[in-house]
Simulated assay, not measured.
Amino acid sequence: MIVDAHHHLWTIDGGYTWLDEPGLEPIRRTFTPAMLRAELAATGVRHTVLVEGGRCDRAEAADLLRLAAETPEIAGVVAWLDPAAADVAGTVAAYRALPGGDRLVGVRAQVQSEATDYLDRADVRRGLADLGAAGLVFDLVVRADQLGSAARAARALPQVRFVLDHLGKPRIRAGELDGWSAAIADLAAAPNTYAKLSGLVTEADHDRWTVADLRPYVREAVAAFGPARLMFGSDWPVCLLAATYGEVHAALVEALGPLPEPDRRAIFGETAVAAYGLRDPRTGILP
């Protein structure tokens, strides 16, 4: 069973203003569940985790949860939530009361647009603790220079599960490895952390990347987290800036190289199921 732990869906008129930035023309359009389903079928992916798409408002959560309720392949939703807000627990309860609310498995905020020490703030830490108490994962979409504060937050809040998106956005295009590698090892030392092997092609040269460019970062992640805390994510449709869905999957398979079958099953499915507590709301299990 292959699980894609990270993808998006959006409509062009849905308030995703960041799509207006230059260079994003290939993804400046609507992406629907039907389009996703075609990619999943072609790659053999059975289930997915749908992640907020940078709209940064509560109304998007309702849209994503509804899509999940209507799309059997979507096993979980990571919605947007501001951890510094005063009503984190109330917002979580409101999300869970929405149609599809039983698919809510985590939340994230656009931490990558905040200061380097954002995750050290007391108000943010309080909100993260509330998320842990609610049984939700916090997805870390952070820059490489924010990995230190992410590690400190994970150590301070061992009751919260943290999932690192896109391996912390290493600067693959520039070939920067050593500083990022040390920061990844520091984060991975906290046992309540996981990471997604996702978003790497868009951190490389969009037009000239090769698997050889990605391999050092994949290997460092495997060494730091181990297969039981790593998961495959396509980052579709953002990945279309550099590669197709199938090319992303194939590149990760090649970058990982030969794997024992239990490790392959973990990275391509079992870790995501365990980290997010994925299940079919109707049966309690994922087929």
Rank of each mutant, 00 (worst) to 15 (best):
M1K: 08
D4I: 08
H6S: 11
H7A: 09
H7D: 11
T11M: 13
W18Y: 04
W18E: 11
L24I: 06
I27F: 14
R29Y: 10
R29L: 07
T32K: 02
L36T: 09
A38M: 14
A41M: 11
A42I: 07
A42C: 05
T43P: 08
G44Q: 09
R46T: 15
V49P: 12
L50T: 03
D57A: 14
L64Y: 04
L67M: 15
L67K: 00
L67D: 13
A68R: 02
A68I: 09
T71N: 12
P72H: 04
I74E: 01
L81V: 12
D87L: 08
D87M: 14
T91G: 02
A93H: 13
Y95C: 11
L98F: 06
G100I: 00
D102I: 12
L104I: 12
G106D: 10
R108W: 07
V111R: 08
Q112N: 13
E114I: 07
L119Y: 03
D120Q: 10
D123G: 11
R125L: 12
G127C: 14
D130T: 10
L136Q: 05
L136F: 01
F138Q: 13
V141R: 03
V141L: 15
V142A: 05
R143I: 08
A144W: 00
A144E: 14
Q146F: 05
L147Q: 07
R152F: 11
A153W: 01
L157H: 05
L157F: 13
P170F: 05
R171G: 05
I172H: 09
I172L: 08
R173P: 15
G179T: 09
G179H: 07
L187R: 03
L197R: 03
V201F: 06
T210W: 08
T210P: 12
P216C: 02
A221R: 02
V222Q: 01
A223R: 15
G226D: 06
P227G: 08
P227T: 10
A228M: 11
M231Y: 02
M231S: 03
D235G: 00
W236Q: 01
T244E: 11
H249P: 03
A250H: 09
L259H: 02
G269R: 00
E270F: 10
A272G: 12
A275T: 02
Y276K: 04
Y276Q: 05
T283K: 00
G284Q: 12
